[in-house]
C-alpha cells in the first residue's frame, strides 16, 4: 500500500485534504485536470465511492469543478481559499489549544509571543 490512509478518520476527508495539499504545493496548478475517481481509487487502493465522496466535498466548496465529459479541474484562485481555510484550521487546532495549555502553566500572552518568535528564529 503506497499511501496508507488513517483508518480512524473518514477516508474521503483525507482524500480531500491530500488534493488540497497537492494544490497548495503546486503539484496541481489551477485549471489543471485532477485524476479521475477510478485513478484515485486505484492509486490509494480505496473504494471508488469513497474517492467520489472526497472529490464531491471539494466540488461543493468550489475548489474543483466538473467539465462535462472531460473530468474534474482545479478552479482558479482556489489556492487562497485553501490557505484561508487552513489558517482557520491552524488557529483552531494549534493556537487555541496552545493558549489553553499556556494558561494552565501561567504563561502570559506576551511570554507566549516571545516564545513563538524564539521558535521561529531557531527554525
Amino acid at each position: 500500500m503506497s499511501f496508507p490512509m488513517d483508518d480512524s478518520r473518514p477516508i474521503f476527508v483525507q482524500i480531500a485534504e491530500r488534493i488540497e495539499n497537492d494544490i497548495l504545493e503546486g503539484n496541481l496548478p489551477e485549471e489543471s485536470q485532477v485524476p479521475s475517481i477510478n485513478q484515485f481509487a486505484a492509486f490509494y487502493q480505496i473504494n471508488p465511492a469513497t474517492a467520489l465522496k472526497g472529490i464531491n466535498l471539494l466540488v461543493d466548496q468550489g475548489i474543483l469543478y466538473k467539465k462535462r465529459g472531460i473530468g474534474m479541474f482545479v478552479a482558479t484562485g482556489v489556492r487562497d481559499i485553501i490557505v484561508g481555510k487552513r489558517k482557520e484550521q491552524f488557529y483552531e487546532q494549534y493556537v487555541v489549544s496552545m493558549v489553553k495549555e499556556a494558561e494552565k502553566l501561567g504563561i502570559t500572552a506576551d511570554q507566549l509571543t516571545d516564545m513563538i518568535k524564539r521558535g521561529a528564529k531557531e527554525q
Binding site: 475517481i37 477510478n38 481509487a41 486505484a42 487502493q45 473504494n47 471508488p48
Partner: peptide, 9 residues
C-alpha cells in the same frame, strides 16, 4: 486489491 478495484471500476 489492485485487480479487484481495477475490474470493479
Amino acid at each position: 486489491y489492485d485487480r479487484l478495484l481495477q475490474d470493479y471500476a
